[in-house]
Design a protein around this nucleic acid. Structure first.
Length: 532
RNA sequence: GGGGCCGUAGUUCAGCUGGUUAGAACGCCGGCCUGUCACGCCGGAAGUCGCGAGUUCGAGUCUCGUCGGCCCCGCCA
């Protein structure tokens, strides 16, 4: 057995070839038998002609899907008008001269074609059949190519790949750890790392200057369609850097990756939104920029209209009235709008006010509470067009953003505005350093406890901790956070102070993070990084 | 921790307000077929309707329980 080429890679016409692979499909004409032979590189058509060899043709009758076979034959141009443009090898075929069945196969529970996708549990039970599908093989290859690009790119930029331990110590904060029982210390457990955060900071303190790792992370949390308990991330840390240096580096790296999956060139640099602006305009800290439907504040008008719900919301401290214009949705039936109102209530709103935009004005149960001029201003501010539906939420700023942000996404999905072929990356910066956890009655870190506060906000740490912004940045792509990082705290005193704000006593801090606190006192360089 | 949807042939699914023998497509088996390529044509086999109980003259269909799957909220520094 000496394979001369892959099925998917056409060989020169009239050369003898030896091919091995899986029977993808058979087309038995009684006379001629065609076999599509598949390997990881693609598919090629094999022809068994009774005129070439009656016994060989007889043998080929036995072939069934997923048999593993070896074919000896000759590459030939297909007869005129029998070329198959859908196939990369569609201009040629292999005239078989010899057939060896290397291994027959049972009738598989599903055929490894891309046309139909069986239930996921069945795909996993017969994972090897699932992974034979050309689509799955393409994905694996794509992933491999991305990893190669990333390694090559980071190497040229002077990064050193370092491995860090998997059997490690549990850290408080963050996700639940996976635990591994220890045989040597009976009753004690290792924790699998949620991320190599402390290790990479240690490497910076050691002077490695630029580290990266393509590393597995483990988080024992509930799953989602796009969330697995173990996943791989590109982990990066650099010394003596500003956020902008890390962000530009990542833009280059991600652009290289996007080139692998999309033909369109991404313009660098990526747009940057502050957290505040992202929330204000999109009601989300990971906005999907593939479509508009931005949030607009009409609190000033709402405060002086005669609609009590709006006025009261504006009179409440921190209250807001905001709205979005949904293109074409003004033609919806009353029932469809009622459904939308219920969805808003399920998302936490007290209700949902709406206006159908007509040619000259609006059609709305709340129109009577507004002066014509006020309605004109509202329409103008939401950039409303005829047949749009305007929806409004009146509540605290938090609830308003949350509800409208979620509705914006739901409606975009319903209106088919989420084109999977378009990639809209951006940065979100200026996150708050801390948020208040009412249940635990203490502050918790928004990013993680090692994130550095912005220098100009340092005085606020004592007076108004929730107002402190951090040197953190998230990369967002099409509404998904695909990377996040920060400049870290490299000063012992500041780190101790933050741990204190998080409700940790000095003893606790020493017990949990003593190693880091000590290390910061032995010449820790300023550093920061990201995990994608 | 909470919520929604789904379990019917090997697979993907249909099956109406409960009603006679539970269907389709693909796949599988047999036959025919020398230029097909998701080949075509003819014929055939294939089902504990996830499981258990209940309501009913009668349950794939309704109710309760249970098991399994998918999705969402919480959670995921």
């Amino acid at each position: 057995m000496k394979r001369t080429t892959y099925c998917g890679i056409p060989a020169a016409v009239s050369t003898p070839v030896v091919l091995v692979g899986w029977v993808h499909r058979r087309r038995d004409h009684g006379g001629l038998i065609f076999i599509d032979l598949r390997d990881r590189e693609g598919i090629v058509q094999i022809v068994f002609d009774p005129k070439t060899s009656a016994t060989l043709h007889e043998q080929a009758h036995a072939l069934r899907p997923e048999y593993v076979i070896e074919i000896q034959g000759t590459v030939a141009l297909r007869p005129v008008d029998t070329e198959n443009p859908a196939l990369a090898t569609g201009t040629i075929e292999i005239r078989a001269t010899n057939l060896t069945i290397l291994n027959p196969a049972l009738t598989p529970p599903f055929l490894p074609t891309d046309e139909m996708e069986p239930d996921e549990s069945l795909r996993l039970k017969y994972r090897y059949l699932d992974l034979r599908r050309p689509l799955m093989q393409k994905r694996f290859v794509k992933r491999h190519q991305m990893m190669m690009e990333i390694r090559r790119f980071l190497d040229t930029r002077g990064f050193i790949e370092v491995e860090t331990p998997y059997l490690t110590r549990s850290t408080p904060e963050g996700a639940r750890d996976f635990l591994v029982p220890s045989r040597l210390n009976c009753g004690a457990f290792y924790a699998l790392p949620q991320s190599p955060q402390l290790f990479k900071q240690t490497l910076m303190i050691s002077g490695f200057d630029r580290y990266y790792q393509i590393v597995r992370c483990f988080r024992d949390e509930d799953l989602r369609a796009d969330r697995q308990p173990e996943f791989t991330q590109v982990d990066i840390e650099m010394s003596f850097v500003e956020p902008s240096e890390i962000m530009h580096l990542m833009e280059e790296m991600i652009s290289l990756c996007l080139q692998q999956v999309s033909s369109s060139q991404n313009r660098q640099p990526f747009p940057v939104l502050t957290y505040q602006e992202a929330m204000r305009r999109f009601g989300s800290d990971k906005p999907d920029l593939r479509f508009g439907m931005e949030l607009h504040d009409i609190s000033d008008i709402a405060a002086v209209c005669t609609f009590n719900v709006f006025r009261q919301a504006c009179q409440t401290k921190g209250g807001r009235v905001k709205g979005i214009a949904i293109p074409g949705f003004g033609l919806s039936s009353r029932k469809e709008i009622d459904t939308l109102v219920q969805e808003a209530i399920d998302l936490g709103a007290k209700g949902l006010a709406w206006m159908k935009v007509t040619g000259d004005g609006v059609d709305s149960p709340i129109a009577k509470f507004f002066e014509p001029g006020q309605i004109r201003t509202v329409k103008q501010r939401l950039a409303a067009l005829p047949n749009d539906l305007l929806i409004f939420v009146a509540d605290s700023e938090t609830v308003t953003h949350q509800v409208l942000g979620a509705l914006r996404l739901k409606l975009a999905r319903r209106l088919n505005l989420l084109d999977p072929a378009i990639y809209k990356p951006l940065w979100v910066t200026d996150f708050p350093l801390l948020e208040y956890d009412a249940a635990a009655s203490r502050y918790v870190a928004v990013h993680h406890p090692f994130t550095a506060p912005m220098d100009e906000d340092l005085p606020l740490l004592s007076s108004d901790p929730l107002a402190v912004r951090s040197k953190a940045y998230d990369m967002v792509l099409n509404g998904t956070e695909i990377g996040g990082g920060s400049i870290r705290i490299h000063q012992h005193n500041l780190q101790a102070k933050i741990l204190g704000l998080l409700g940790m006593s000095e003893e606790e801090a020493r017990a949990q993070f003593g190693f880091l606190l000590t290390a910061l006192q032995y010449g820790a360089p300023p550093h920061g990084g990201i995990a994608q």
